[in-house]
Simulated assay, not measured.
Amino acid sequence: MQDLSNYDKHLENAINWFWDVFPDMITAIIILIVGLWFIKFINRLTRKFFDRKDYDIALESFLMQLINVGLKVLLFVAVVTQLGVESTSLLAVLGSAGLAIGLALQGSLANFAGGILILFFKPFKIGDFISAQGVDGTVKEITIFTTKLNTFGNQVAIIPNGQLSNNNIINYNAEETRRDKIDIGIGYGSNIKEAKDILLQICKEQTTILKDPEPQVFVGELGDSSVNLTLRFWANNEDFWAVHFFVIEELKSRFDKANIEIPFPQRVVHTPK
């Protein structure tokens, strides 16, 4: 009988506790639902604001993520406080947890700081073709912690922002024009002047090759089996690769017609008699 009496007492206490916290639970649920709706509403307003302004796309994405995370943290604090947790105790717990998480996630914090540096100093923007961390690709997205590149093979390379902000980056789209350098070897018996004239004529005929600065051809090296010519010309970024491959194919065709030899490696093997 004593056990049954204790059971009834515990059950009664549990029921009384439930009815005591029930209003706070309902209020917390309402706050959660309304808060999530409000966050979506703020995100939509923020998106519309950015759409009307001509801000950098990467900066817009970064700020959108930051606002979304910040609002959800505030909503979490409001819901937990409504359930009876004191705000001072909650802040102390969050501070301790933040310190522990910060020590455990130093790399992530470095990536976060790197993302801020990238957005502030703008070494590249979305749409730029860059080379970094051994990866070449077009910048697809800049998030809080990482940058996504779209490679030549249409693969997505994800690079931590901390590494990007602390290492070398080559931005091929930073300037409107680029200079190409093509090395061509011709035989020692070939006419150097004729070969140079052919290369300059190709550049003169090709409209996507800039005429100012003028294209240049010079003898770069007297190699073991060839006279190595160097062709340099300028082109706009959007035309660069197309004209690069065109010139290589065209010079081969015209050299063949002019009987200008392009040597290839040969090996002579002598066998004893």
Rank of each mutant, 00 (worst) to 15 (best):
M1D: 15
M1F: 09
D3E: 13
L4T: 04
S5N: 12
H10S: 10
L11C: 03
L11A: 09
N16Q: 12
N16R: 01
N16F: 14
D20G: 14
F22P: 00
D24H: 10
T27F: 14
I31Y: 15
V34R: 05
V34P: 03
W37V: 08
F38R: 01
F38G: 03
F38Q: 06
F38S: 11
I39D: 09
K40Q: 13
N43D: 13
R44P: 05
R44N: 14
R47E: 07
K48D: 12
K48G: 06
F49V: 06
K53T: 13
D56E: 14
D56N: 06
A58V: 01
F62T: 01
L63K: 06
Q65I: 06
N68C: 05
L71P: 13
V73D: 04
L75R: 02
V77I: 13
V85R: 02
E86G: 09
V93R: 01
V93F: 15
S96E: 04
S96A: 10
G98A: 07
L99G: 09
I101V: 05
L105W: 05
Q106F: 12
G107Y: 12
N111G: 01
F112A: 00
G114I: 00
G115F: 01
I116L: 13
F121Q: 11
K125C: 03
K125S: 11
F129V: 00
S131C: 07
G134Q: 04
G137E: 00
T138I: 07
V139C: 01
I142N: 06
N150E: 02
T151F: 00
F152M: 03
G153Y: 15
N154W: 00
I158T: 08
I159L: 14
P160W: 01
N161K: 09
N161E: 12
G162Q: 03
Q163E: 06
L164F: 05
I169F: 12
Y172F: 12
Y172M: 11
A174Q: 00
T177P: 14
R178K: 07
D180Y: 13
K181R: 14
D183F: 15
N191S: 08
N191V: 10
E194G: 07
E194T: 09
A195P: 05
L200D: 08
C203F: 04
K204M: 11
K204Y: 10
E205R: 08
Q206Y: 12
I209K: 10
D212S: 15
P215T: 00
E221V: 04
L222E: 02
G223L: 11
G223V: 13
V227R: 11
V227S: 01
L231C: 02
N236L: 15
N237F: 06
A242I: 12
V247L: 05
E249W: 05
L251I: 10
L251P: 01
L251K: 04
R254V: 11
R254M: 08
D256F: 08
K257C: 08
A258V: 02
I260H: 07
I262W: 02
R267K: 11
V269I: 15
H270L: 10
T271S: 12
P272S: 01
